[in-house]
Amino acid sequence: MRGFILACGFLATLAGDAAAFANNFCPGELEAALATRQKIFDEWPLRPVNDEATEFAQQLAMGLASRYSVNAGMIPWRIYLVRNLSPNAFSIGGGFVFINEGALTFAESEEELIAIIAHEIGHELAGHFCQNQRQQPAGNFLDYLLGNTLPSRREDIAHLGSLPQTIDPIKEQQADRIAISLLLASGYNPHTLLRVARRLPKDAGAHWVDSIRIQTLARLLENAPGFNDGPGSSAQFQKIKRILLNEAPVNRF
Rank of each mutant, 00 (worst) to 15 (best):
Q38P: 06
P164M: 10
A204H: 14
L30T: 11
A185L: 02
D203V: 10
R67D: 00
D176N: 15
D51C: 03
R213M: 04
A18Y: 00
L163C: 05
S181N: 02
F98T: 01
A218E: 14
P76V: 03
R219N: 12
L182V: 01
I92P: 08
F25P: 06
F21L: 08
L64A: 00
R213A: 07
A65P: 02
K171N: 14
L60F: 00
F41T: 12
Q136A: 13
L11K: 06
E222F: 06
N88G: 08
G205W: 07
L146K: 03
P164R: 09
S186G: 02
R199K: 10
R134S: 11
A15F: 04
L183M: 08
L85R: 10
W44V: 13
V49Q: 15
Q174R: 10
I121H: 01
S211W: 10
Y80W: 12
E108Y: 02
A126W: 03
L85W: 11
S86Y: 11
L182Y: 00
A65H: 01
L146Y: 02
T166E: 06
I40M: 13
E31D: 13
R219K: 11
A179P: 03
R47K: 14
G73E: 01
L30R: 07
R198Y: 08
T166S: 09
A206Q: 06
F227E: 09
H123G: 02
T166P: 00
G187H: 07
N71G: 11
N189Y: 01
A218H: 09
A224M: 09
L163D: 03
R47T: 05
F227W: 05
D176M: 12
E55F: 12
I79E: 02
F4R: 12
P231T: 09
A107C: 07
L46I: 04
A138W: 02
V49R: 15
E120R: 00
R2Y: 12
D17Q: 08
I240D: 12
A32H: 08
A15R: 06
L60D: 00
L160W: 15
Q238E: 12
F141D: 09
S91L: 01
R252S: 14
L104R: 01
N140G: 15
I5H: 08
F141M: 14
L160N: 11
A19P: 03
V209P: 11
H159K: 06
L160I: 14
L193H: 12
A22F: 01
T13P: 06
I214G: 05
E112V: 05
Y144E: 12
L183D: 00
G9D: 04
A7K: 04
P249R: 07
V250M: 09
G28I: 13
V97R: 00
G230P: 04
A89Q: 07
S69N: 01
Q58C: 02
A7I: 04
F129C: 01
H207V: 11
G232W: 01
G94V: 10
R177A: 11
I121D: 00
H207Y: 11
N140K: 09
S152K: 14
T166A: 11
S162Q: 03
S69A: 03
L244P: 04
